[in-house]
Design a protein around this nucleic acid. Structure first.
Lengths: 112, 112
DNA sequence: TATTTATACCTCGTATAGCAAAGTATACGC
DNA sequence: GCGTATACTTTGCTATACGAGGTATAAATA
């Protein structure tokens, strides 16, 4: 099932923060991790993820460090800052509220 | 708790369809119903709702009829079309998928 | 009667998220 | 040497939601 693009908005930041909270990671890896761990729901394009990472870093929620792994191929590994952890907690709570709000309207009906 | 604006994106259409499925209603009434029924989560502005209703009608998901109630104050009452019911079923399923996907990433942790 | 408040609708400009597409560059297998 | 996978970067596009303003009528109140 292809999800409505708009549905993802606002949650993307949250899932990226959550993924980085579990384990520091770099962009290319994140794209694949998120897709795999969410069973294809969060199949972010690179054009979505990289600008998002820059924004999160500019906001001080994550910090990136250049690493030159095997050979010389550089990659930028991001991890959550303390501020990022606080933000994740907040976003997570907001998400719960959101789910609750939708449930109140949809009211458990299936509409199927 | 003030929700991130972006979080609402994509769900707004769904909750409006769901509200109209329960009971035909007009714009001004919908704004208040949604706010009340969702405990303040879906506090849509009129500048959000009215254009949304026009779009839903243009897509054939809802149909509006002018009614002149008490006195001469006109109001436009919307109800779901058959296509609207099908769309709601689809949106509802997408929402469930979405919630499932986020749960897979956030993994039940509280982050609090 | 005059004024305020509530009802009800309409519209424009702005901010921003996510995406597709294109580009750059290095490492690895064949 | 050549294709593929890795890894990062940037640009332009579309769509959504919102704030702020506007119009107009009915009801309440002073």
């Amino acid at each position: 099932m292809k999800l409505n693009r708009e549905l993802l908005k606002g949650t993307t930041e949250t899932v990226v923060l959550a993924a980085l909270a579990r384990q520091p990671s770099h962009g290319y890896q994140l794209v694949q991790q998120l897709k795999a761990q969410s069973e294809g729901i969060f199949a972010l394009g690179e054009g979505t993820l990289y600008p998002l990472l820059y924004k999160l870093e500019a906001k001080g929620l994550i910090r990136g460090r250049w690493e030159s792994g095997t050979g010389g191929r550089r990659k930028r590994v991001y991890s959550l800052t303390r501020k990022g952890h606080r933000c994740l907690a907040d976003r997570s709570a907001q998400w719960d509220q959101m789910v609750r709000g939708v449930a109140l309207i949809l009211g458990g009906k299936s509409y199927a």
